[in-house]
Amino acid sequence: MSEYVFALAVNGLVWGLIIALIALGLSIIFGLLDIINVAHGDFFMLGTVGGLVVAVGTGSFWLALLVVPIVGLLLGAVIERLVIRPTLRQASLTIVTTFGLSIIVQEMVRATYGPQPRRMAAPIEGTVPVFGIDYEIYRIAAAAFAAVCLIVFFLFLNRTRLGTWIRAARHDPETATALGVPVTRVCAFTFALGTAMALLGGVIAAPITTVEFRTGVDILPFCFMAVIIGGLGNLQGTVAAAIMLAVLEGLMTSVLEPTSARILSLGFMCAVLLVRPHGLFAGATR
């Protein structure tokens, strides 16, 4: 057993909280709109690029953290109106649509921002010892911020009128419409919210990872795994699954080759699909 097993478990928890924020965006879009959003990773990438551009342009990372999700909200609303709405409720068609969107977003960033990878400096410097390794303070702050965002999201979903409308539209759109809920606008807002969460995750993760036009490609499968294991459309399940997967993979990496660790993660997902086809936490779905 690796001597750093506890440190890697902590790191998995930290990374899992950040991933959970991104996967949650994917999950609410699927849960309400039945859209399998293949472009979600690219929205995350837009968050990293946008975060760097704003942080460098204004000299303030904190401003980027505020501005970029708002831009994401607007961008999501525009994309929902132009790209998503024409294919709404046709899950298979949305895969094709969002795949095209993914290529367009990536190539637009490559053509304008350039293909070279860049680094965003962490706004909080320094390390603290965590079970034998020097651990970045920023990572801990990022995880704490992601956790706060998750709490705020669930409070919003459960304690506000708009949140109630979103839940109502997810549960039974026809009855919600009959009761006066503006379901079309709720759908547009939900897609915009999911997009904004991906961009927010991008800004938070940018100082940890790399900023480039393909950053979103690799993060998408992990998010999908969290959504599938958590139960399609099950928001709490997605968060729990993202954290669980990150911790498990971190722990397995400490004792196994990375490829074996990934195979075990995928094997775990297959087992969940076989034993509980609706996900580990399917009971709470819809």
């Binding site: 890697l8 990374w15 390794i133 993760a205 940890i208 990872t209 990496t253 400490s254």
Partner: peptide, 10 residues
């Protein structure tokens, strides 16, 4: 890989 900490720790 996006997070290299598990590998750097080894």
């Amino acid at each position: 890989a996006k997070d290299l900490i598990p590998y750097l720790a080894k």
